[in-house]
Design a protein around this nucleic acid. Structure first.
Length: 543
RNA sequence: GUGCCUGUAGCUCAAUCGGAUAGAGCGUUGGCCUCCGGAGCCAAAGGUUGGGGGUUCAAGUCCCCCCAGGCACACCA
């Protein structure tokens, strides 16, 4: 329950009416009509109850209306096949708009402070985060924010694959770069990482440590460059995410599970449950017994655990931490990974419903109307860092978030850089700026204290009608893990405000009008600010 | 070949876990503003929701079959 929610408000009213009719178990759904002609709120409950009550929907609707407290409404109508449409009176608009500036407006307690975890990005520490896997960054962060808004305690986590062949190559590459930085002429191996970033890191280290690392014996030196490379890559990535407004609560190192024995233990447990067998020198998991379409390898014939094996151990570690729910954001290319993961965790007896894999589709960049080639060898930028430099944090985050994560994202760089109304992030931010401009005007002082009855006219009511949906939008967006819904809402609210701003003067009007409209302005400012906060976009006071 | 995602206005995308007449922005066309603002507002035109079946009071949404695009299908991570 949330007293600020218009949906909850009507749900309660309808539940009460239904109880008077002797119906106690109905699932009441409140719908926001697509046009004000259909009321401010609507319900289809008369239709859904039709079968159970063996009555025509319109008859149920009539009975429902006769048992409903009419005081909050101008009118209540039956429409179409049996919708019941509710039209708020002015006092109700006033009531809900007045919630907007209350602390906690839009927040819910559905999570009851229970711990939830969101793992996102988790890119290999072998290079910079790219624009493609960078989509997970604002997405994971905003989903986390939404979950916090509905009352969960959220841990943001980044899983670092700091083990295995690729990391070996990374360490080796760094060593070569280190030698090059010292004037040695040597070349990167075939599988090495050719990016300039390792050379930069090598130079930096060289300045600190001189020739010392090269004097170690082979094992110590390999280990040194490996761990040093990973540590410095993480530090770099962490910095980029911070510039993006994202702070991870935890960077979980895969190697920590080697030291703790968790990987071995996970494999042992899978074995003791009877899910493992040997074939072709490798150890396999019988995931087909759990409904998967093929078995997968747990231990390679060289004795190393596979990525899947360590990831099962990792998720087991997560489960042991007691989260009520875990979300794992991954690029769509990791899709094939979910089957084996679920199989492994199910085999170990965990409730797989607690773990949610959320896949996001790929990103395409467009510049000058043409798609930017994303190959690493091309000169065009591909890193998140470069994107930030080019379009700025606000536009980058907003553009990443404005589309549903399960469609491909066409990121228009030119549009993102435009400071015009075509650019949705400016459209929304500018609405906020306008609110601030009015409120900061010296004529604004003191006019808010006048009491008034409600809102008048299409522009005022239209804005009030949009404002009051914020809590329900938050709830819906959080439930669907869909920050893009907040973008849509913010754009609708901004549009309603720009329209209001055009039609209705605030400053200089007679007291009661000014006070009424100022209420809408300050409420809009508060709600827009909250929207932008969820998106991780700044809410400027002037532009 | 198998699995997943996508297909909606000229373009980019929405559409409340099945709701009413499928909506925005851009673009096009035409209007409005001596304003707290032009980084603005209003309006019009633009649709067989890829195609075909099915489920029901109701389908862009759910099920089945096609078509098209994308992504995966390793002893990589």
């Amino acid at each position: 329950m949330n007293e600020h929610s218009v949906k909850n408000f009507l749900e309660v009213n309808i539940q009460n009416a239904l109880e008077k009719m002797g119906v106690f178990d109905a699932r009441v759904e409140v719908i926001r009509p697509d046009t004000p002609d259909h009321g401010d709120l609507s319900t289809n409950v008369a239709m859904t109850l039709s079968k159970q009550l063996r009555k025509a929907p319109r008859m149920i609707a009539e009975e429902l209306i006769s048992h409903t407290d009419p005081s909050p409404f101008d009118k209540v109508e039956i429409a179409g096949p049996g919708f019941v449409n509710f039209y708020f009176n002015q006092a109700m608009f006033k009531r809900f708009v007045e919630f907007c500036e209350k602390p906690g407006f839009g927040r819910w307690d559905v999570g009851q402070s229970q711990p939830m975890q969101v793992e996102f990005v988790s890119a290999n520490p072998t290079g910079p985060v790219t624009v493609a896997n960078g989509r997970g960054a604002p997405l994971g962060d905003s989903i986390s924010r939404l979950l916090e808004w509905i009352g969960y305690k959220v841990d943001r986590e980044f899983y670092v694959n700091d083990r295995g062949a690729k990391i070996g190559h990374l360490g080796k590459s760094l060593e070569i770069r280190y030698r090059q930085a010292g004037g040695e002429s040597c070349e990167l191996p075939e599988e090495g990482y050719p990016g300039e970033y390792l050379l930069d890191i090598a130079k930096e280290m060289r300045a600190e440590l001189g020739n010392k690392p090269l004097e170690m014996n082979d094992d110590a030196r390999n280990e040194f460059f490996r761990t040093e490379a990973v540590a410095r890559m993480i530090a770099w990535q962490r910095k980029v995410f911070e510039d993006f407004g994202i702070v991870f609560d935890r960077w979980f190192l895969e190697t920590s599970m080697v030291e703790s024995g968790e990987i071995d233990q996970a494999i042992k447990d899978l074995d003791s449950k009877g899910f493992l067998y040997k074939e072709d020198g490798a150890v396999w998991m019988k995931s087909t017994e759990l409904g998967d379409d093929k078995d997968f390898v747990i231990i390679k014939s060289n004795g190393d655990p596979t990525y899947t094996a360590t990831d099962i151990a990792y998720h087991r570690n997560k489960f042991a931490r007691g989260y009520v729910h875990m979300i794992n954001l991954m690029g769509a290319d990791h899709h094939g990974h979910t089957g084996p993961m679920y199989a492994g965790l199910e085999a170990l007896g965990y409730d797989k419903n607690k773990l949610e894999f959320h896949l996001y589709q790929l990103v395409h960049l467009f510049r000058d109307g043409k798609q930017v080639k994303m190959s690493k060898s091309s000169g065009e930028f591909v890193t998140l860092e470069e994107l930030l430099e080019e379009v700025g944090k606000d536009a980058a985050r907003y553009f990443y978030l404005m589309r549903s994560s399960d469609t491909h994202l066409n990121f228009d760089l030119d549009l993102a850089k435009k400071k015009t109304m075509e650019n949705p992030v400016y459209y929304v931010q500018y609405a906020h700026v306008r609110c601030c401009a009015i409120m900061d005007d010296e004529r604004a002082a003191g006019i808010a204290d006048v009491d008034f009855a409600g809102f008048e006219g299409d522009a005022e009511v239209g804005l009030a009608r949009e404002l009051m949906w914020f809590p329900d939008e938050v709830r819906q967006a959080a439930t669907m893990r869909a920050p893009n819904r907040i973008c849509s809402y913010a754009e609708r609210l901004a549009a309603a405000f720009h329209s209001f701003y055009h039609d209705c003067r605030v400053l200089g009007e007679e007291d009661i009008v000014a006070a009424r409209r100022m209420k809408l302005v300050s409420s809009t400012r508060a709600v827009l600010k909250s929207c932008l906060e969820i998106l991780g976009v700044s809410a400027p006071e002037r532009m």
